[in-house]
């Protein structure tokens, strides 16, 4: 019983911290710097277009 709860809590902590780490990476790589542009970019249908990435 106790060990089950401990496991669940540790899993929750791990998943939460993992998601937080991914979000932190996304923020520092500039993916939240241009919300308006990103909303528009999905409409550009150029297959040769390079995917957005770190540009700084």
């Amino acid at each position: 019983m106790i060990s089950g709860i401990a496991m669940i809590i540790l899993c929750a902590l791990g998943v939460g911290l993992g998601a937080l780490a991914i979000l932190m990476w996304a923020i520092s790589s500039g993916q939240y710097d241009d919300p308006e542009g990103d909303a528009m970019r999905i409409l550009i249908d150029d297959p040769a277009d390079t995917p957005p990435g770190p540009h700084r």
């Binding site: 710097d33 241009d34 308006e36 542009g37 528009m40 999905i42 409409l43 550009i44 150029d46 540009h55």
Partner: peptide, 25 residues
């Protein structure tokens, strides 16, 4: 979106330019 692709591809076509990215915000 049209402006973004027009400007970026237009500027990338300038000889020597390796990258162009427009921040719309």
């Amino acid at each position: 979106a049209g402006c973004i692709s027009k400007i970026e591809s237009g500027v990338k076509a300038v000889p020597g330019v390796t990258g162009a990215r427009l921040n719309l915000s």
